[in-house]
Design a protein around this nucleic acid. Sequence first.
RNA 1: GGUCCCGUAGCUCAGCUGGAUAGAGCAACAGCCUUCUAAGCUGUGGGCCAUUGGUUCGAAUCCAAUCGGGAUCACCA
Length: 600
Amino acid sequence: MYFCPMNIEHFLSESISSIINELFCLTSSVNEIILQKTKKEFEGDYTLVTFPYIKASKTSPEKTGELIGEQLLKNNTSITKFNVVKGFLNFTLSNNFWLSEFKTISHQENYGIKPAKSSGKQIMLEYSSPNTNKPLHLGHVRNNLLGYSVATINKTQGHDVIKVNLVNDRGIHICKSMLAWQLFGNGETPQSSGMKGDHLVGKYYVIFDKEYKKQVQTLIEAGTSKDDAEKKAPIMLQTQEMLLKWESSDKEIIDLWKMMNGWVYDGFAISYNKLGVDFDKIYYESNTYLLGKEVVQDGLAKGVFYKKDNGSICIDLTKDGLDEKVVLRSDGTSVYITQDMGTAIERFKEFPTISQMIYTVGNEQDYHFKVLFKILEKLGYAWAKECYHLSYGMVELPEGKMKSREGTVVDADDLMDGMIATAKETTEESGKVTNFTEEEKEQLYNTIGMGALKYFILKVDPKKKMLFDPKESIDLHGNTGPFIQYAHARIKSILRDYNNTTDITISDNITLHEKEKELIKIQYDFAKILEEAANTYNPAVVANYTYELAKLFNQFYNECSVLKEENKEIKQFRIKLIETTANIIKNGMLCLGVNVPERM
RNA sequence: GGUCCCGUAGCUCAGCUGGAUAGAGCAACAGCCUUCUAAGCUGUGGGCCAUUGGUUCGAAUCCAAUCGGGAUCACCA
């Protein structure tokens, strides 16, 4: 059974609301009371801003604060003192109040995390969605980490999250790699070349592009216009021919397609595994790209769509602040949004119990999803308002945007390997792993390297574009994943020395050290942080929280000794306090897909 | 041109459902290891929160305009 410690803010607000109502003849409700945590420079735990009440109190902000403060003190034994600075009433909760809060927190194995599937809400979350013509790069890394993390965070709220991947495995761009391999590959395979499958296919995609440019140039030199040359380059015509063959299920082409996609999937499996992401279901566009055509007919009958003179079918969204959008070409074939409509409808049919659909896709497609959701709404699907575009900003490099054609993309595999290598280097220098086995060492390097990478990316608000500076990303100091992992390892080291933490009962006679109280307060926040992160689809909230927690622990560690504390009751309390801290650090980091080591 | 997003310390980012003297990390400088892991802790310097106006007792936060940067507006995906 999950239970929350007493909701402090709610209990205080209730008390304050009844006081000001009585004192100033107001009829405020609990929700209108705005409480905030007292700033560090002032004494107190919580602060009430009294400016809003000076009209009713007909006196100064200071006096108003005094009046409320005196009443609070009288009515609540858990409030021990207060002070007023201008319009701010700061009051302090008793030692035992915080101690009892801590007991509630520490008695739960996973404070703040609700049991799996306990909320009754089911969410489908799509992320990753790679193309099978090239390996994953830094942009995909942000997508994957974000999707996985948001899924994990939503699970902590008791939601049932179905993680899905929609693989773009067909189309003209896939044929480009296939054709280039056919023309220039000489039968090269991942086995024969020792190259990872997705990289091998990506290599031919690049080769295609080079050859294509060359042919276009030749045509231009022969007097063809640029536009014509780009359309008529032989290799491009061949590609289009190949796509037609694919669509008519030509056996040779299908076999080639299956073989090369198989290479790519083998490669992706390795990258996904290293990234630590997984899926409950994988969709392939080769199976879904024809979906949505019946829906277009349906919408036409309903009058949502209309047919233009040239035969194409459109929707007019100008009244909704959007434009006119084609949903079916004049030759009757689908456009991209057609299959997105069909796929969404199909998913809600296949999983009738899902109440929300989240798409993890970059913000360059903001407009696309606005249109998609609007169309679904107009078609009359009630769940359309539960569709959410988890839009994230682009990842940029110090030298600017990544351009695959200019070879400035950061490859996901190289990136991960580089991070792990750096972790290895730094760890070896520290000389802390001399008694580790080889397997333990490898695992630790992996944990630290991937922890650094994941934290670096997830600590930034997903909505914002982010700069990826390789030099900065491999830093293991300060606001980084390894900093937090280190705090965890330090705690575990103490707990190992202490041995048995299970039969500790926390004494009621402990005077809290300042840092101990701060630790309890921040631990208490964890449940709310998870809720907020889930509601706003924002792993950065959890990342920044976990960093604050680790930083606070380090301060505590510096000021208070645990094992050398002579008072047995304090020592036992501190053991429990750091045990809970480690647990929250671990659970917070797991929300980001980051593991924490026992030793480092 | 229309629509949308973003401008906070030298750099990377928090803070944005309005509240006290705007916070971290990196970089720079100065301290702290015979004491539970120094991947740590403490301190110093560094800011017209892009600009201007408005709303308010109170604006980095809300509104408008301007400037600067980006995305998008295909019978592409």
